[in-house]
Design a protein around this nucleic acid. Structure first.
Length: 464
RNA sequence: GUCCCUAUCGUCUAGCCUGGCCCAGGACACCGGCCUUUCACGCCGGCGACGGGGGUUCGAAUCCCCCUGGGGACGCCA
């Protein structure tokens, strides 16, 4: 047990996206590796946009990925009294002040600053004001003007910004609610977070938050800013680039271990290794090997990893997942072939569970109709003999083991004088309806004698 | 525009700190071949990068500077 305390602090304004998931993962991994504490905090100070559905969605996604937390979830909306007290404290100490500038005035100032080629920041109009007019106001933090603020980022190294670049941040809105940059400081401090791992887009916030930690008398935590994830066009990852919701990948037939493995390798590396189980990661993960530049999300590689995990996955577990998908598609699986056997025939030929489901459907439903081109080629009058022979030899089998099935086909070959290449395709179309399927022997074995014979007979009848 | 960060194959990256082992290694994708009862899997091979310019050095992907490119921030969002 170490004293490392890290947190993941999503705002519940949508689903858990790829970037957030990676940040959560990095936090989780480090906490587990160092045997520290992983805290989940819901940053819902934006009353307008925060929803319970989003909270649920985020929780579900973390659960799916296997990211368990030790404390929380804490909701900032439950902690407003604390924030209010801290605002008052800063006000009393003269470290914050009331600002009566209106939205319109601020907009005008911003535009003017931009026009003059400068940074559009607050000019400090109310900073030295002593009167307290009876008008709506916000509270701003008095950011130091002199000197510079620097911190040593665990990923990026030393980052320094001149305080003259900073402006006075609003810490309390007109409606009395606190803002993000303020509550995050209080919560990280009060929850004794000693390492803040978050997205790279927060670097600028960090230098604004550090003076607040100091003003409040808190110890400043360490920071690690993880680079952004971009789309193929090097633009910030968004819906335009395809699915960005973690849970959509679940729907698409991805395994959580593939997602975890992909996410961790986007920005982190361990020599030439590519495949990592969660256990491997907990052992090997380190901030030292996290890259400093943004990375492009590559769905092809994620797909490859998924393929790998399907190929090497425990058939029994995959069977359960596959059954769920099939049932979701309205396929009755209960009376059908053994699901584990089904999975085994498909593991090497499916990149996603959805793809596996597509390939598995014929096991549970006799082909409604035959693929036209396939039927024309392999199910016509000249194949009646082969079909008949196959029925004959297969139906006479008392044991339906793979070996027996192979022997039966051998007999068909001998008796017909045909090679397997002339027999297989016909049987395949009769059994599956198409030309693509697992090995014929496997299909026959998994389907079982009764189903096989009846489908072959049906094909024979169809030829007429 | 201003500030911050960043820069190795198309993409993810190893190597950079502690210069020579790197005319740069691995992975995905792509291309070709082999295997094969279909589709796949698998195996073998190929294509492909140190952004540019200056330095420092006997020697630079590795150290320094400039430029350029990319990202981020600049909100009473988080």
């Amino acid at each position: 047990m170490s004293d490392l305390r890290v947190r993941f602090a999503p705002s519940p304004t949508g689903y858990l996206h790829i970037g957030g998931a990676r940040t959560a993962l990095f936090n989780y991994l480090l906490a587990r590796k160092e045997q520290g504490t992983f805290i989940l905090r819901i940053e819902d100070t934006d009353v307008e946009r925060s929803t319970q559905e989003s909270v649920d969605a985020i929780l579900q996604a973390m659960d799916w990925l296997g990211l368990s937390y030790d404390e929380g979830p804490f909701y900032q909306s439950d902690r407003y009294d604390l924030y209010k007290n801290k605002v008052r404290e800063l006000l009393d100490k003269g470290l914050a002040y009331r600002c009566y500038c209106t939205q319109q005035e601020l907009d005008a100032k911003r535009e003017a600053a931009l026009q003059n080629g400068g940074k559009p920041r607050y000019d400090g109009t109310c900073r030295e004001r002593t009167d307290q007019p009876d008008a709506p106001y916000v509270v701003r933090f008095k950011t130091p003007h002199e000197g510079s603020t620097a911190f040593n980022d665990r990923i990026k190294g030393t980052i320094t910004v001149e305080n003259a670049e900073l402006d006075d941040l609003i810490i309390q809105r007109t409606d009395g609610n606190p803002t993000y940059n303020f509550v995050v400081v209080i919560d990280d401090a009060e929850m004794q977070i000693n390492l803040v791992i978050r997205g790279d887009d927060h670097v600028n916030n960090t230098v604004r938050q550090i003076p607040m930690f100091q003003a409040l008398g808190y110890q400043v935590p360490e920071f690690a800013h993880v680079p952004m994830i971009l789309g193929a066009d090097k633009k910030r990852l968004s819906k335009r680039h395809g699915a960005t919701s973690v849970m959509v990948y679940k729907e698409l037939g991805f395994l959580p271990e593939a997602m975890v493995n992909y996410l961790v390798r986007l920005g982190w590396s361990y020599g030439d290794e590519e495949i990592f189980s969660m256990a491997d990661l907990i052992e090997k993960f380190s901030l030292d090997n996290v890259g400093r530049s943004a990375g492009v999300f590559n769905p092809d590689k994620l797909l490859w990893l998924n393929e790998h995990y399907i190929k090497t996955g425990e058939p029994a577990r995959l069977a359960g997942l596959l059954a769920d998908i099939l049932e979701g598609q309205g396929v009755a699986v209960s009376g059908g072939p053994d699901m584990i056997a089904v999975v085994k025939t498909l593991q090497e030929r499916a990149k996603t569970l959805v793809e596996m489901a597509d390939g598995a459907r014929f096991y549970f439903e006799a082909p409604a109709d035959y693929d036209e081109a396939a039927a024309a080629k392999f199910l016509n009058a000249e194949h009646k003999g082969v079909l008949g022979l196959t029925i004959k030899h297969l139906s006479s089998l008392s044991s339906f083991a793979l070996e027996d099935i192979e022997n039966a086909f051998k007999s068909v070959m001998e008796e017909s004088g045909l090679k397997f290449g002339k027999i297989g395709p016909t049987v395949r179309v009769a059994l599956t309806g198409g030309t693509v399927s697992p090995s014929i022997y496997d299909v026959v074995a998994v389907l079982g004698k009764d189903v096989v014979v009846s489908r072959l007979q049906r094909a024979l009848d169809a030829i007429g």
